[in-house]
Amino acid sequence: MPLNSSVRENGEIIITSGDRLTIENAAEFSRIVREALEASKNVAIEFEPAVEIDITGVQVLCSACKSAAQSNNQFSYHGPQPQALADVIAKSGAERNAICKYNNNSKCFWFGGTK
């Protein structure tokens, strides 16, 4: 499924990752997530298992998490994290086990902590 968003009956917005979240489509990814968070209290990403992710993808996720926390929205993901995300987190030293002040002092379940 290409990078896109759809609204569920319960108001939740699901964003499908498509096959890449890299610099080539970072602007589009960022826009889709921003619009989703403006439209719904509850936004989740569904990753393709083989999705490619780079630093820009990580930055959009972190930025979205900060934005959601600020306005008390939910920003999360469904299903297991894709291998590429685990790889880019490990390689760039982005693991976070501690609480994050930008995420209302909750644990970071994106980059290391558990959901």
């Binding site: 610099i23 990814f29 960022s30 921003r34 630093i55 930055q59 959009v60 972190c62 982005a94 930008y102």
Partner: peptide, 18 residues
């Protein structure tokens, strides 16, 4: 370090903030 990543409305997605 993630502290310089701004919120989405200020994010220039191709910039490096980390």
């Amino acid at each position: 370090q993630f502290d310089e990543i701004p919120q989405l409305n200020e994010l220039v997605p191709e910039n490096c903030y980390i």
